[in-house]
């Protein structure tokens, strides 16, 4: 089931990346908050992957090319600002997506209705930190701007329609742009434009084309499970 895999992989991969912050967060409250978000996403991933098959087989035994997540979520954490920019872009997207799915009454309506509450908190968290970092100190402003700029090219892919996800994709994009623009402006940040025509942009994650860091992430994630074929844990 393409749709469950696409949405499930997004949640699984981002959860994994956020889990990498454990023990490294800039302040103790963020240890709790980032783990919270990672746990929400992992919970969503488990429901979604279970719709498509066995959650552990899908997570631990698929090759890189079989993953259907967008490239945005697999990007390494970078500094805290980079992680927050990724969170902002993704949580605004996921909230819009789940709101439409919840209202639509299709296959994902139940899951989306529950998850949208979690995602509203994720968006709130990302928004607050974007404001603090953008409008904090000179250094935090620069770092936040760098994160926002670096990840911008990965956002176009978010709005490629996913087969089996029956929503209004153009309005998802319009709403996302309006929300993100509003937050960035309030945070005194420059809203990225482009990329210019001819520049490389991300966009094939849904087709199983990923970026280099993703293979390493999977190697680490899958290694133990694959080392003991057939074992249960």
């Amino acid at each position: 089931m393409t749709a469950a895999l696409a949405l499930g992989d997004d949640a699984l991969v981002l959860s994994h990346r956020l889990g990498e912050w454990a023990g490294h967060a800039p302040v103790l409250e963020e240890e709790v908050a980032l783990a919270n978000i990672a746990l929400d996403l992992l919970g969503q991933a488990r429901v979604l992957l279970s719709l498509a098959g066995d959650e552990d087989e899908l997570a631990f035994l698929r090759e890189e090319r079989a993953f259907r997540n967008v490239q945005l979520v697999e990007q390494p954490n970078g500094d805290f600002a980079h992680t927050i920019a990724r969170q902002l872009y993704f949580s605004v997207y996921q909230r819009g997506l789940y709101e439409q799915l919840a209202a639509g009454g299709g296959d994902f309506a139940g899951l989306a209705a529950k998850a949208v509450k979690e995602v509203a908190y994720h968006q709130d968290h990302a928004t607050h930190w974007t404001l603090r970092l953008g409008d904090g100190t000179e250094e935090s402003h620069q770092r936040m701007q760098r994160g926002v700029d670096a990840l911008w090219r990965f956002t176009g892919e978010l709005f490629q329609p996913v087969e089996g996800v029956e929503i209004d994709w153009p309005s998802l994009h319009t709403d996302w742009l309006a929300t993100v623009t509003g937050v960035l402006q309030q945070a005194t940040l420059t809203v990225p434009t482009g990329p210019g025509s001819g520049a490389w942009t991300a966009g094939a994650g849904r087709q199983g084309i990923h970026t280099e860091p993703f293979g390493r992430m999977l190697a680490e994630m899958q290694h133990l499970h694959r080392s003991h074929p057939g074992a249960s844990w």
Binding site: H16, A22, L39, L42, M221, H223, H225
Partner: peptide, 17 residues
Amino acid sequence: SRAPSLRRKAILMAKVQ
């Protein structure tokens, strides 16, 4: 990052949290 099942991963993340 190496937890061998998604259930164990959730338990461990929740514990560390």
